[in-house]
Write a protein that binds this DNA or RNA. Structure first.
Lengths: 233, 233
DNA sequence: CCAAAAGTGTTCTTTATACACCCATGT
DNA sequence: ACATGGGTGTATAAAGAACACTTTTGG
C-alpha cells in the first residue's frame, strides 16, 4: 500500500514544503531571486528557493531557514503568501507548499552570496524564464500581492538601503506599480506622511543637483499607526 | 520511532487539515458558524468547522466538502485565509491547517440545517465563546480580512439574499466595518458605481415608506472590472 | 553659462462630507 | 395628519492632478 520507511501513520499524509519569492530592487528594476535546480524533477530548470518543513519548526521558520541557506540573509521582511495544494503539483507525490514572499536589500545579498554551490540569479520581471512546478503561478500571485500591498503598507523601504533619495523611492514605486508618478506630487505626498527622517547627507558625484538622503522612521510609523494613520499611496 | 500504520514514509510528515470561518448576516448582525466538538481534544468546546484533507482533493475542495457536510450549502464564496503551522497548535500531533473564510446567505443555511447530529450555531461577533485549538486566532484574522476586503471588492453581496434594499446593504457594511455611514452619501456612492440592478419590487409591510429592491449585477461588475473599474467604499 | 534634476508653490478638478428638503407609506 | 424612513439635491471642505518656477550641481 505504501513504500517502506520509518515514519508510519494510520492515514496518508502529504509532504509539506515552503517556497519563497524573494524580491530585490537594484535601483531601477524589480528583481526576483531564482535558483537552478540541481536534481530531478525539473533538473536544470529555474525555480523558487524552498524545501521541506521539519517537524520542530513552523512554516515561517522553515522559510527563513531556507532563505538563510540560499542568501545568507537573516531578519528580512517575510510574509505568508498562499498555500498551494493541487493534487498533481509535484511529480514526487502529494506535496503541499506554503509559499512566502520576502523583501531583501539586494546589496546585503550580493555580499554574502557565492558560498553556495547552487546556481542562483536575480531576474528582472521582464526576463523571467519558465519555472519548475507551479512556481510561475506562485510568482504571478506574489507580484500581484506586492503591487497591492505596497500601496497601503510601507513595505517598499524593505527593498531599499537604509539611506535613500526621494528619487530612489519613486523609482521603486514606479518599478513595482508599473506606472509613472509625478515627481513633485510624490515628494509632497510622502513628506506629508511624516515617516521619513531627512538626513544632512546628499548624493555624491551626480552630474546635476544632488538629492537629499532620507531614512524610514519605523518608530514614528508605529506611533502614527496606533493613532489610526494609514499609509496610502 | 513512530506508531504503527499502513502509510510509511522516509521522513516524518504533518497532518493537514482545513478549517473554515463561515460568515453570515441576519439583517442586523454579522455572525459566525461554530460547531461544538463531540470528541476529544477540546470535547464540548466550540470550534471552527473543518477536517482532514484527503489525498485525492486539494485544500479548497476539502474546505468545500467540509462546508457542505456542515451546512448543506454548495457553491458559496470561499477564499483561502492563511495557513497555521505552529508546532504545538494541536495536542494530537503536528497538524498544519489551511484556513478558509466563507460567506453564505444565512437563510440558505438555515433551511438545510438540522440534518446533522453535531451541535452547530450562529454566533454574533460580540458573543463568541473561547474556541478550541488556535481557532480564536484564526477567527480574529478572518474578521480582519473581511473588514479589509469588503472595502475594495464587492463580496458583501455574498452575504445578502438575491434581492435586498439599500438599507440592507448599508446595515451589512455598518455591521462589518463597525462604523456609522451617512445613508444619503452611501446611496449615492453605491448607485454611482452602476453595479446594482434596481427592481420594480419594493419592501412590503413596512411601517413607513418601502425601500426599493436591488440585485447585484455580477456581469456588469465583471465588465467594469476589465475596463479598470475598482470597487471601493 | 548650460543642462539636468532637485525642491517648492499654485491652480484647477475631483471627491468626500455634512446636512436640508421632499416623498411615500402604515397607523 | 403624523411619524418614520426612503430618495434626491446642494454647499462646503479636503484631496488629487497638472504644471510653473526656482535652486543646486557638474561640466
Amino acid at each position: 500500500m505504501s513504500k517502506a520507511g520509518n515514519y508510519c501513520y494510520e492515514y496518508p499524509r502529504p509532504m509539506v514544503t515552503t517556497d519563497c519569492v524573494i524580491f530585490g530592487f537594484d535601483g531601477s528594476a524589480l528583481k526576483v531571486l531564482l535558483i537552478e535546480r540541481g536534481i530531478e524533477p525539473y533538473k536544470g530548470q529555474w525555480a523558487l528557493p524552498g524545501g521541506f518543513m521539519n517537524m520542530e519548526e513552523d512554516a515561517e521558520q522553515c522559510a527563513r531557514r531556507e532563505l538563510f541557506e540560499e542568501t545568507g540573509v537573516r531578519d528580512m521582511f517575510i510574509e505568508q503568501l498562499y498555500t498551494y495544494s493541487d493534487v498533481n503539483r509535484d511529480p514526487r507525490g502529494r506535496v503541499v507548499s506554503i509559499a512566502y514572499f520576502a523583501l531583501v536589500k539586494i546589496l546585503d545579498y550580493e555580499l554574502s552570496a557565492g558560498d553556495d554551490a547552487k546556481n542562483a540569479n536575480w531576474f528582472s520581471m521582464s526576463e523571467i524564464p519558465s519555472l519548475a512546478f507551479d512556481h510561475d503561478h506562485i510568482l504571478r500571485m506574489a507580484i500581484q500581492r506586492l503591487k497591492g500591498k505596497v500601496r497601503y503598507q510601507p513595505i517598499g523601504f524593505e527593498l531599499l538601503e537604509e539611506k535613500f533619495t526621494m528619487r530612489d523611492l519613486q523609482n521603486l514605486y514606479e518599478a513595482i506599480l508599473e506606472l509613472q508618478i509625478d515627481r513633485r506630487n510624490f515628494h509632497r505626498k510622502i513628506m506629508k506622511m511624516d515617516i521619513l527622517i531627512p538626513l544632512d547627507e546628499k548624493e555624491a558625484n551626480t552630474p546635476h543637483r544632488a538629492g537629499r538622503y532620507f531614512q524610514f522612521d519605523r518608530k514614528k510609523y508605529q506611533e502614527l499607526t496606533t493613532k489610526g494613520f494609514n499609509f496610502e499611496l
